[in-house]
Design a protein around this nucleic acid. Structure first.
Lengths: 223, 223
DNA sequence: CTATGCTGTTACCTTATGGTTACCTCTATC
DNA sequence: GATAGAGGTAACCATAAGGTAACAGCATAG
């Protein structure tokens, strides 16, 4: 379980992170909105703890820029006024704690938020006419179901989580054949098999080899 | 939307009820635990607001007697101590507000609780001609009753809760045979037995094995 | 004490999977 | 334009993973 903490008081933040870590919660930390934006890039948090007063803006603004279906937000603020709370809830907050607060309470509430929100997440992926649901283990292309072997699934899943970025051959091999002797032919066969399975004649090629860089799942490989 | 309010301060209760009604929330009201028990009989609330100090006991006690899957609980209390809050959360509370509080905030939080909890319990399941009621332990397929052994029930129940997603073999084994030595044959037998029980000749196969990935209860999704 | 049903065990069958090999194509470099 | 190295394809087949039937031990009911 990983969450994002955005808080400019570094002492409070350090205490909070320590406490949450001890509870088994991993924490990404940012002390400003800009830092929060760059850190959160590409990570799917299970919850977000947002301070309202931040050096370069308010947590409210930040919450507005998040997508509808992002992680649940808990606001943390010294402000106890009703208008502040209502503003927070109106931008999608699911909880609001006023400082000072007990770390135990924060931990409990964060866990509640994360728990309730998990079954919502969307494990679906689409690229051109290719549709994949990683949870349901369903892959389709243009209405036809694609049957993939276990190995091919691991490969596809790995590529999807990185798409459209490439994954290095070494990475791929380490993930698909953990602790095994692997030769280059095994790798080549697997790639060919996945590619032919997800591509019928006349369809765009979506699985590209970038020489010396690895494999990528994306529309075209021109840069 | 209907909720239950249990609160012994009649003035506060009246104000709360008025405010919530104006927000479009219907409220059943009780001023004691005994009254709460008799009033709530037979009604499925979408949320429960519970005071902690009540003339004939505490809200905590009341919460303990509720079933696991009942309405979400919000505690309301003058007590601000951490131990009180933790006690409340440990008996299943989803929120905790200390008095005095703003009615607007209560309304917002109650709506959040109710909204998140609605898509909850549904103990019946249907897929093709298969009907299952997990609570009543009844399974039918095309008008004929299906008799299942205890093991087969656990398996079917687990699959239903995940359907149409697959459940991994490891998960299945860990749930059905907790802390036991299990060999692969036991697992294979159980699956065959469940499959033959829920499938008669000419009926669609609904229990599919995804090699190396688990078991899934769903209709075929190819072609 | 018999009967019935559940579950673990064994033995045997079927099949998709994936490692292997052999032979391509392409491109960069000298 | 010869060579090497990277990557692509097709076919072969041993085998692991899964499916089924039959049987035996052990409960529990009647």
């Amino acid at each position: 379980m990983i969450i994002l903490l955005v808080e400019d008081d570094s002492i409070l933040a350090a205490q909070t992170i320590d406490f949450l870590n001890a509870e088994g919660i991993e924490v990404d930390y940012a002390s400003s909105l800009t830092q929060a934006r760059s850190i959160s890039e590409g990570t799917d948090y299970e919850a977000i703890i947002l301070d309202i007063n931040l050096p370069d803006g308010t947590g409210i603004e930040f919450a507005k820029t998040l997508e509808k279906n992002s992680a649940p937000i808990l606001f943390l603020s010294a402000r106890n006024a009703l208008t502040d709370k209502l503003a927070a809830f109106s931008v999608g907050a699911l909880d609001y704690i006023t400082k000072p607060f007990a770390l135990e309470e924060l931990a409990v509430r964060i866990k509640l938020l994360a728990r309730k929100n998990t079954p919502a997440k969307n494990t679906t992926f689409q690229l051109d006419s290719l549709f994949v649901d990683l949870d349901a283990k369903i892959a389709k292309r243009a209405e036809r179901t694609i049957v993939l072997s276990p190995q091919q699934w691991s490969l596809l899943a790995l590529l999807i989580t990185h798409s459209p970025n490439p994954v290095s051959k070494d990475n791929l091999i380490a993930t698909i054949w953990p602790d095994q002797d692997v030769n280059n032919n095994m790798y080549k066969s697997l790639v060919t098999r996945l590619r032919t399975n997800i591509t019928k004649p006349n369809e765009k090629v979506l699985l590209h080899t970038l020489k010396k860089q690895g494999l990528a799942l994306k529309e075209r490989d021109d840069e």
